[in-house]
Design a protein around this nucleic acid. Structure first.
Length: 590
RNA sequence: GCGCCCGUAGCUCAGUUGGAUAGAGCACCUGCCUUCUAAGCAGGUUGUCGCGCGUUCGAUUCGCGCCGGGCGCACCA
């Protein structure tokens, strides 16, 4: 068991001894400012507050019942009632040695693994994937990797947009203006062109719109020709998705598109109608407020001219078609029946938060038992802005395609790699550029708090200085370089080294390694990969300081050399594992 | 109009149950490569945490009211 967990459990036991009825779940320890110690708990102050106790007195009583002598030096009570813990050096050494033997990598698997459905990325058929998909895909992938690492069962499901009104226009375009040669050359661009041309015509000419609608009706009715074309469009899009996800290194357990749920949509609406959850209005069918929430908090109400009016969740349009609320309801139902998840997490743009509020409330009304046992979570995120402060676009004002973005990242990285390491063969420089370019883009996207908008800047992410992926990859490459040199100079020893820490840089690095697991758990609890980014950046900073001031291969004696090599190896392993958890690769040399 | 999100250093942003003197990167200045990768390290400068009131031993964090910005408000997803 990792030291901080031992402290936590001992502390909880001590708290229970003093306050038998206290809820100790919130009695936790956190890494803290080194001037106070290695770990700190401030839980006693809030316990004292709710019970109107003197916090210093409570702390004194708890410490009297606390036995952490195997783990820590004397526990200090400080300030208003903080408990400060300083690890015993012997235990720190033992923990590192156990890690060096491969017994752990500073994190523990979840005691109670959960089944979680993760819904992310969700690109649309017949459209190019663009920057708008980076955040959902990158955050979603980092979350699935984190949760899997902690032993949870994750069903990642790509809810592809393969159904909807746009197919009427696409079908019309396919039949009338398709350029077969272009379709073979670049299918997505040609499909996009079809949509744009027909869409413009529909805007200008209602008769064209009627034509498109009738194509859609035929598709929805299962007419053979349109169904065949639709399937071909999906297949062509799937190729694009496969290429891009391949480059990104993102995998899904499932890719059940919207159309998968078509067979159930009619019954969903019928049941909602039958049970009075939905009703007809202006020809459409919608779910309206049931009045169970205060007006201000009710997503089914909107205030217009200081009057609260209905803002229903429509589940059937007046033309009889269904919309995405219906599909999403059927999707939840299917997921629950198929996988019995504890949670369903949607990694989707914050702008859809209103939709999810309505969706979750509607589902709770529809299937109240299931809803009680399942947590539905919307993990929202902000927009990507250009350096002009407006949504990120190309110079000509188009959305930036993901494939172009990745190409440019690799090209820019290649220039820098060639400049910094001209001696490396070109094939190797290309591979390094691929890993660094892609890593820089992914990291820049994961680093900001997900809920805020962030500014996309090539120069910032590929300046390759400061808190960027290349800085972390560089730290890793430097470690690997040490081991290459070590292999030339010494017989590489596989015996377990004794860790002996002396320099302050060694202690700081070692103690930071121990916090990997706390960080992973924080990412999992709050679904925020940026915590891991910051942890890894700090780890790289600690390593760089160590690297500057503590010679490894030229250490004073063999024992120190072995100890430092072990520290290097553990740092490399955590860096690699951590970056992998963010979906970012490393290179041995750069 | 109503709701949601945001406002922290010149710029871009962190800030983990409310905690101790609010942090990082960039930019700017000064040192450090005949010694493990200088894509680095060490040091220096930078703040009415939008404004006000309240709760609290303690507020960037919680509540209320303003100001400023973004987004969303029935048959697109």
């Amino acid at each position: 068991m990792l030291p901080h967990k031992q402290i936590e459990l001992s502390l909880q036991t001590a708290v229970r001894a003093v306050l038998p009825d206290a809820d100790v779940a919130a009695v936790l320890v956190r890494p803290c400012d080194p001037k106070f110690g290695d770990y700190q708990s401030n839980a006693l102050m809030s316990l004292a507050k709710t019970r109107k106790l003197n916090p210093r007195q409570l702390a004194t009583d708890v410490v009297a019942n606390l036995d952490v002598s195997a783990v820590c030096e004397k526990v200090e009570i400080a300030g208003a009632g903080f408990l400060n813990f300083r690890l015993k050096n012997s235990l720190l050494g033992q923990t590192l040695e156990a890690a060096a033997r491969g017994e752990h990598l500073f994190f523990a698997k979840a005691a109670q693994p959960k089944t979680i459905v993760l819904d992310f990325s969700s690109p649309n058929v017949a459209k190019p994937m663009h920057v708008g998909h980076i955040r959902s895909t990158g955050i979603g992938d980092a979350l699935q990797r984190t949760l899997r690492l902690l032993n949870h069962r994750i069903i990642s499901d790509n809810h592809i947009g393969d159904w909807g009104t746009q197919f009427g226009k696409l079908l019309l375009g396919w039949k009338q203006i398709l350029n077969r040669a272009e379709l073979e050359r670049d299918a997505i661009t040609e499909l996009e062109r079809l949509y744009k041309v027909i869409n413009a015509e529909c805007d200008a000419n209602p008769a064209r719109l009627e034509e498109a609608k009738s194509e859609l009706v035929k598709l929805q009715a299962g007419e053979a020709e349109n169904t065949a074309i639709w399937k071909e469009m999906i297949a062509l899009s799937q190729k694009q998705f496969d290429t891009i996800y391949g480059r990104l290194g993102v995998r899904f357990e499932q890719a059940l598109g919207e159309s998968f749920y078509n067979p159930w949509l009619g019954e969903v609406v019928n049941e909602l109608l039958r049970r009075g959850i939905a009703r007809e209005s202006e020809g459409a069918v919608g779910v309206f407020s049931d009045g169970s929430l205060p007006q201000k908090e009710d997503p089914f109400l909107v205030n217009r001219d200081s009057e609260w009016v209905a803002d229903p969740a429509l589940v059937r349009k007046s033309d009889g078609g269904f919309n995405y609320m219906t599909t999403d309801l059927a999707t939840i139902d299917y997921r629950l029946k198929t996988w019995s998840p504890k949670e369903i997490v949607y990694v989707v743009d914050d702008r859809q938060s209103g939709h999810f509020k309505k969706l979750f409330l509607t589902f709770a009304r529809w299937k109240s038992e299931e809803a009680k046992n399942t947590k539905l979570v919307h993990v929202g995120f902000g927009k990507i802005m250009g350096e002009d402060g407006k949504p990120f676009k190309t110079r000509s004002g188009d959305t930036v395609k993901l494939s172009d973005l990745m190409d440019e990242a690799e090209e820019r990285a290649f220039k820098i790699v060639s400049e910094k390491s001209p001696a490396l063969p070109e094939t190797q420089r290309k591979e390094i550029a691929r890993v660094i370019g892609l890593g820089a883009v992914k990291y820049a996207d994961l680093l900001p708090n997900r809920q805020s908008d962030y500014v996309f800047s090539w120069d910032k992410m590929l300046a390759l200085q400061g808190n960027t992926a290349p800085y972390l990859q560089y730290a890793y490459a430097r470690i690997k370089s040490i081991f290459r040199k070590a292999a030339e100079t010494f017989n590489v020893q596989h015996s377990t080294p004794n860790i002996q820490l002396a320099a302050p840089e060694e202690f700081a690095l070692a103690k930071h390694l121990l916090n990997f697991g706390i960080t992973l758990e924080a990412v999992a609890d709050e679904l925020r990969p940026n915590y891991l980014c910051n942890y890894l950046f700090e780890l790289a900073v600690h390593f760089s300081r160590f690297f500057e001031s503590c010679p490894v291969l030229k250490a004073d004696d063999e024992a120190a050399r072995h100890s430092r090599l072990a520290l290097c190896d553990l740092t490399a392993r955590v860096l690699k594992q951590g970056l992998d958890t963010l979906g970012i690769e490393v290179v041995e040399q750069m």
